[in-house]
Design a protein around this nucleic acid. Structure first.
Lengths: 196, 196, 196, 196
DNA sequence: AATGAATGAGATTTCATTCAT
DNA sequence: CATGAATGAAATCTCATTCAT
């Protein structure tokens, strides 16, 4: 019992997990604005009041979902940074459609849910700092092959370009995507360690 | 389609303009999720049914608002591109907080409103193409001072970085912003015409 | 249009009056705690949302009902004080079961509804002051036939005794009622003008 | 029915006492309408189902709370009537804000809870009878110093005036209170035994 | 050109209570 | 003795939309 988190429903509850999964699905498929406790319950095949049994307020649920999304991101980033070609893996993480689309939904959500905003801010900041450290470690002096670049700057630049591509793809926009990817590829090539 | 706009209420109606202005304000101040026809009416000091008189459906209204927002953007871009230092002006346009925040709201809206999505897609595409043309014209060969860059690629890259900065500022995130701005500044310097 | 109150639904609306009447009935018959907008709507044969159309919040409705109840009281008091035997009429007003029971419900309601509390406080104060003035005018020096009495004191004493009798009758308590009424009768006799 | 109390949980259970105490607090602080088993549980730091374990229905709990409140009142009255100046002590009991406010909550509750109503009725009746007896014993013939008064009548009159004062103070009404208190003081003086 | 009335659907919560363990 | 899970009903309120005038 020691240390066991004291929230309604054990963290291991299957029902609880079911609700969170349904919420994730809805956010992914229809965007966060379509995410009401009613619809989440319907999607999970549960009664609305059961959702409120596990998550007293809608905020509680959405914060938990964004917390889990953040954990997923963290895990993916650690994998990326531990891979053979960490820089390329990081870039691929940034243009991963489904994950980035979800992250963008949480950004939009943050505008209207203070609790979500707080969590997203903390996590984004921490992620940027962490990426900066790792990039500094991985790239060392090679970062100066790109004039004006720094690890943290690179992290933000890649994230921004990735998000823009994903966002516009979702919209149906195409122009400039291949060209932007080519710019990034040029950077990746320059920063690659095997370059003599 | 034959020229004459087929909507209720003259396009010049003061009431109509009042409604649109109220909608813009609400979107800017509280985000699009807080934007219902009832609240727009209240903000404009009008009855909800009058809003529906001018805009039969909520979609009609929001599409019109996004259309006007797009027009504003177009105008700002043309001004930027016609200025003394068009490239820097374009970059400043991309990091203009209030406009970009609004654009991001429309992106979020596009996820749930097919009509808005369609309009945003068309406009974004057109804007990218237009920026590409102008940048090609303005920069000429100077674009090759930056390895791998192309006018359309540059347009997307600047837009993406600008949006990321604005989005994160809204969240309260700081790390990497100065560094990213420095990267962009380096590019702007390199691309400047007065460089011998 | 000048001066016309600017609330939803003309004050003369039949539907509006229907809702208020239903609320009054429910409060009288089942007590204020049974008074939800749903039940009021059902009693009036209307949809709950229509109730909210006329009274955006439950408070709005209950304040209006208490306002009308206060007006009824005012009217009854003026009639009482204008009658042949104003003092006795006032006492009979205080032991009028249905009106006092209703007033007690509003008192209870005031504990949980700040808006109602405010209105009840204002009205009770005004009523006490008004009764004091009239009693002073009606009784003149005769008030001193009862040692220690004053018009305002008498007003409160009669109100308190009346309320206690009505409250206890509602409960089913009997003991002491006849005796208390006799005490009051003695006062009324002493204060009567025709007493030589 | 044969002596042994037939309720779940020993009457001496500490948990049981905790629940009752939490209920009392809530009623006192927020009024009975704010008193749900869930909130009582939360206030006591217990799970809702535990409250229902001790008190199968809400009625069971509220009746018990009102029973204990009645016992408290009984004790206070016995103390008052056994004091040096029993009449004044009784009057002070009647204008004791916290106790009277609580009693008024129970009165309101009685309107909606038959079980509470029954208990309140029995207790009020018994209290009035008991007060009558004691007053008769204490005052003896002195009761006739006040024309028209009788022990039971006096009991109700004092209770009614006291309740009115407390009720109106809760509302924020002031006018007439000092004057009513003066009337009562005059009676107390007249009825005092040391008056020659 | 404008508005009051009305409505059905849905959102978020709270509630008392039951039941199996 | 105690609790986690579940539920159906209800409460308050908001919403987009329609319609008749």
């Amino acid at each position: 019992m020691a240390g066991a988190p004291r929230r309604v429903g054990a963290e291991t509850s299957a029902t609880r997990a079911l609700i969170i999964e349904a919420a994730k699905q809805l956010i992914r498929e229809e965007g966060y604005a379509a995410t009401s406790t009613r619809r989440i319950a319907a999607r999970a095949g549960l009664k609305p009041s059961l959702v409120h049994y596990y998550f007293p307020t809608t905020d509680d649920l959405l914060v938990e979902v964004s917390r889990q999304g953040a954990e997923d991101s963290d895990r993916m980033i650690e994998e990326a940074l531990a891979s053979d070609d960490p820089l390329r893996a990081l870039w691929e993480f940034f243009v991963d459609t489904s994950r980035t689309a979800m992250a963008l939904e949480f950004m939009a959500m943050a505008n209207h849910r203070e609790a979500v905003r707080r969590h997203m801010a903390e996590h984004s900041e921490a992620m940027r700092v962490r990426q900066g450290e790792i990039l500094r470690h991985i790239l060392g002096d090679r970062i100066h092959r790109l004039e004006g670049f720094s690890p943290e700057g690179l992290s933000l630049v890649l994230a921004g370009i990735g998000r823009a591509i994903v966002m516009e793809e979702g919209l149906g926009v195409k122009t400039g995507h291949a060209e932007a990817r080519k710019i990034v590829e040029t950077w990746l090539a320059k920063l690659a360690p095997d370059q003599s």
